[in-house]
Simulated assay, not measured.
Amino acid sequence: RLMGLVGGGAWSEVLTTHEREVLRMPQGMDFADAAALPEAYLTAWDALVLQADLRPGETVLVHAVASGVGSAAALLCRAMGVRVVGTGRNASKLARASEWGVERTVLCESSPPVFADAVLAATGGRGADVCLDLVGGNYLPESLKAMAPRGRLMQVGSVAGSRADVDLGVVMRKRLRITGTVLRSRPAEEKMALTQAAERQLLPLFESGALKAVVDEVLPMTDIRSGLERMAGNSTVGKLVVRWDD
């Protein structure tokens, strides 16, 4: 019973991947949860823990907190003793965030979004130590305002666009660090090393019950169009999983 990473092309009955990019499934985990786990959790864990050096007691700002990677990040932070402020564009989805330990949510309905004041208020004026930005675009300038001195911003997504106007003065005054990261396009050896590290350090948290996969719905492959339409409409929470009928 295995799960793992693939560089695309996973909507198939049979696929191949390198043996070092697979993980053993935790005891008692079903295949739907296993399908939802690797890419979401390895992306969040790599960005927050391995790259941003997240520490217990810090505060993380997570954009799109009800997404697959966002919900994984929130649960990971809860397991580490880290506070989370989460943003989103859908009020009903944000209402679920408290289940994952998110202390404060901010609904971002305007464009450009406005959330920095709420983050500063939630942190006593200090700001977020780390930002996991799964959105990009015009979220970036406001994220910089919301950061604490010497904060670390991890740019993981760009669904709102790959360009933004940045006030470099804010970056310099606060001594911020901005790191771009993506999992899929990395060399195979890097993904193998990440997968093996996750098996040693991340999987025990699933076996203990501290972490879980967040699955919105399990759909038969014949209904994949409706699943993609739900994703396009921003109505899913966590991951959608598709299965092949027996």
Rank of each mutant, 00 (worst) to 15 (best):
D129S: 01
T16L: 09
A66F: 01
G81E: 06
W244P: 00
D165E: 15
G57A: 06
L219F: 12
L132E: 10
V69H: 02
V49F: 11
G81R: 03
T87H: 05
R55F: 05
G68M: 08
S92H: 10
L50G: 02
S158P: 01
K191A: 07
G151T: 06
V241K: 06
M192K: 13
L54I: 14
S111L: 11
M3T: 14
T222R: 14
A232H: 11
E229T: 13
V114L: 12
E21C: 13
V102I: 12
M25S: 10
T105G: 03
G86V: 02
A122K: 00
F206Q: 01
A66N: 08
K93Q: 14
R104K: 15
V214C: 03
G101E: 00
G125Q: 10
V215H: 03
G125Y: 12
E103Y: 01
M3P: 07
V60A: 01
L134R: 06
A35M: 08
A193P: 11
A116Q: 01
R152Q: 09
R175S: 15
A198V: 09
R96L: 13
V214M: 04
G238K: 01
A232K: 13
V156I: 15
G125V: 12
S235M: 09
K191V: 11
L194P: 10
A121F: 02
A79W: 01
R78N: 05
V241P: 06
D133Y: 04
D46E: 13
S92V: 12
G4N: 08
V85K: 00
E13W: 03
G233A: 15
L76D: 00
M172Y: 08
R126N: 07
L202P: 03
E99Q: 12
P113N: 04
M80L: 15
V170F: 02
R177P: 01
T16F: 10
L5W: 08
L205S: 03
V22P: 07
G209D: 10
P26M: 09
G169Q: 11
R104C: 09
A64Q: 07
V182T: 15
G86S: 05
L61S: 11
G7K: 13
G137V: 12
V102M: 02
G157V: 09
V49N: 01
V170Y: 00
G9A: 10
S12G: 12
G4L: 04
E189Q: 13
D33Y: 01
G7M: 11
K145P: 02
G4R: 05
H18F: 07
M3L: 14
A47H: 05
V241M: 07
A193E: 15
A213Y: 01
S226E: 13
V60M: 04
R230K: 14
P113F: 03
Q201K: 11
R152M: 08
T43F: 03
A40V: 15
V14W: 12
L94P: 08
L54A: 14
A52Y: 05
P113H: 06
E217N: 05
S110H: 09
